[in-house]
């Protein structure tokens, strides 16, 4: 930590203070805060805590934004669990490191909401593609191949249908959900594709295809990808044609 004042770091901390009273109290308190240099913290300690609370709905709006992208996870875990994200290191890291709230939430969520939560996190990722400039063939960043406990997709669709078009309103008035995400050993293979306009298609796919695309999460050479295709069951003489077809379909992209 340099002692040079970085106004963007101060601004990031101020955002966290606005959204998380506990963090604001920590800034004012005596404990160590390695993310802030001494003068940065002094500036923030001078902030009247009442000025951070003049907009009482700021955090609620942020929670609402996450529920729009993670309705099933919110239904499975409860809105307070979503709200709790804003008091985590994961959220502060997102703010300090120019991240995406929805992506950081998905990483933080992990397996807490099982397959449905992982599907929603994958949709959030596919909607926010970050092309990998490294050379080689890789899975299209707008495509998310998933292997999840069988029944995850059906569970997600049931919950979303129950919540209707306004999940936040439904969750505000609904009784707690009794449904639990499937956790069994049997798996289902899913493929998510997001269009440039943000529309998402979601459906089942063959397991070898999903495994091949997952192998291509990081750029691979054509030869390595062809070898993996053969290992997953393709005939050796078909591998080149298979990869060309996946490129033509936009599932693989060349970097």
């Amino acid at each position: 930590m340099t002692d040079r004042l970085d106004p963007r770091r101060v601004q990031a901390a101020l955002v966290c203070m606005h959204l998380d009273p506990a963090y604001a109290a920590a800034v004012r308190g005596p404990g160590p805060l390695p993310e802030l240099a001494g003068r940065e913290r002094e500036l923030l300690r001078a902030v009247d805590p009442r000025t951070l609370a003049v907009d009482p709905y700021r955090r609620a709006r942020a929670v609402h934004a996450l529920i729009e992208e993670y309705p099933a996870a919110a239904a499975l875990l409860g809105v307070p669990a979503i709200d709790a994200f804003f008091s985590t290191l994961a959220f502060r890291t997102c703010v300090f490191e120019h991240g995406s709230m929805a992506l950081s939430f998905g990483t933080w969520l992990g397996d807490q909401a099982g397959g449905p939560g992982r599907i929603e996190a994958a949709i959030a990722r596919a909607r926010r593609p970050r092309p990998d400039p490294a050379p080689g063939l890789s899975c299209n960043p707008c495509v998310a191949p998933l292997l999840l406990p069988a029944g995850s997709l059906a569970c997600l669709e049931r919950i979303r249908a129950r919540l209707g078009p306004d999940p936040a309103a439904a969750l505000a008035s609904a009784r707690p959900l009794r449904e639990r995400p499937p956790r069994g050993p049997k798996q289902e293979a899913l493929l998510i594709e997001a269009s440039p306009a943000g529309e998402v298609s979601l459906g089942t796919a063959s397991e070898p295809l999903v495994r091949l695309l997952r192998f291509a999460a990081a750029p691979q050479t054509h030869a390595a990808l062809a070898a993996e295709a053969v290992r997953l069951g393709a005939e050796p003489h078909e591998a080149d044609e298979l990869l060309a077809g996946l490129v033509a379909d936009g599932l693989l992209v060349a970097g």
Binding site: V10, Q11, A12, E97, S100, A102
Partner: peptide
């Protein structure tokens, strides 16, 4: 906006009023 430009990130806060900014 906090973080990168993204849905749900919008807010509006004044700049940090220091010479470094």
């Amino acid at each position: 906006h906090l973080g990168r430009r993204d849905r749900g990130h919008m807010l509006l806060l004044p700049p940090i009023l220091v010479d470094e900014a």
